[in-house]
Amino acid sequence: MLSYYKELFAYIQNLVRDKEYAKDITQETYMRTLEANTNTPIDNKRAFLYRVAKNIIIDQARKNNKTNFIEFEEKDILSKDIQAEEIVLKLNEDQVLYEEIKKLPQKRRQVFVLYIVEGYSRKEISQVLNITIASVEKHISRASLQIRESLESNKDIIGE
């Protein structure tokens, strides 16, 4: 399991944006995983570590009500066989999308990023941000609509 340490630490640090806090969460993740491993065998240790880390971050956010650590980060993982012009178009589309997400009001952006980018469920988002599930759904819907309308009005920029 130690072979995943650097990878897990980078993932946690990317989420919390604080190196010392990320170290603490990584240590807590390994402690909880080792405790769980003594009771029940773990089939996919890497996935389990990530899930434990994500749960710790959610728990800490609930306790501290620190929701400002959620931010959209542009990451492109591209296949080596994509042609240069496709790469340019993809980067342009991603940049436009990134800019549109940045224009969203803070709470709407947080909900949208948690749901679309991070893959949290509506229930998890409502717990992390301490809002109702109906509010989560409203934010997701309005963010999607706002981004869609803006992208449609800027089709010439993204090359469609």
Rank of each mutant, 00 (worst) to 15 (best):
T132C: 09
Q146C: 03
K66Y: 00
K6V: 13
I158W: 08
K123I: 15
I158L: 11
T40G: 01
K107Q: 15
I101C: 08
S135V: 11
A36V: 03
K80Y: 07
M31K: 13
Q106D: 00
I131V: 14
D24W: 00
L15F: 06
K80L: 02
I12W: 12
A47F: 12
T29D: 11
R109P: 05
Y50K: 05
P41C: 03
Q146I: 02
Y4C: 11
Q95A: 03
R46C: 07
V16G: 03
F69T: 05
E149M: 00
K19H: 02
E160V: 08
K19W: 00
R142H: 12
K103H: 02
Q95P: 05
Q127N: 15
N64Y: 00
N92K: 14
V136D: 10
E137R: 04
Q27T: 07
K155G: 01
N92Q: 11
E7S: 15
D43S: 02
N39V: 12
K103N: 12
Y21R: 02
L129T: 07
N92Y: 11
N92V: 09
Q27H: 10
S79K: 10
E152P: 02
D43P: 01
V111W: 15
Y115H: 04
R32Y: 14
V117P: 03
I131G: 12
I77C: 15
F112V: 03
L129D: 10
P41R: 07
V88E: 10
Q13H: 04
R108I: 11
N65Q: 13
F72C: 05
Q146D: 05
I56S: 14
V113W: 09
L2A: 12
F48V: 09
N44T: 07
Y120H: 14
K45Y: 10
R122N: 14
I42E: 02
S144E: 06
L49H: 04
Y98I: 07
S79I: 06
I12H: 13
E86Q: 00
N154C: 05
A143E: 06
I82N: 03
Q60G: 06
T26F: 14
F48K: 09
K54G: 09
E152K: 05
A84T: 00
T29M: 08
I58R: 14
F69W: 02
I131P: 10
Q83L: 06
K107G: 08
L145E: 06
T29K: 04
S135C: 13
K54I: 03
N37F: 13
L129K: 15
I133F: 04
Q110D: 11
I131Q: 11
R109T: 01
E7T: 15
D156R: 05
E74H: 13
Q83W: 01
N37A: 11
E28H: 03
S3C: 06
F9A: 12
T29H: 09
L15H: 07
E152W: 02
Y98M: 10
V96I: 09
V128N: 12
K102W: 02
L89Y: 01
A36T: 07
R46A: 04
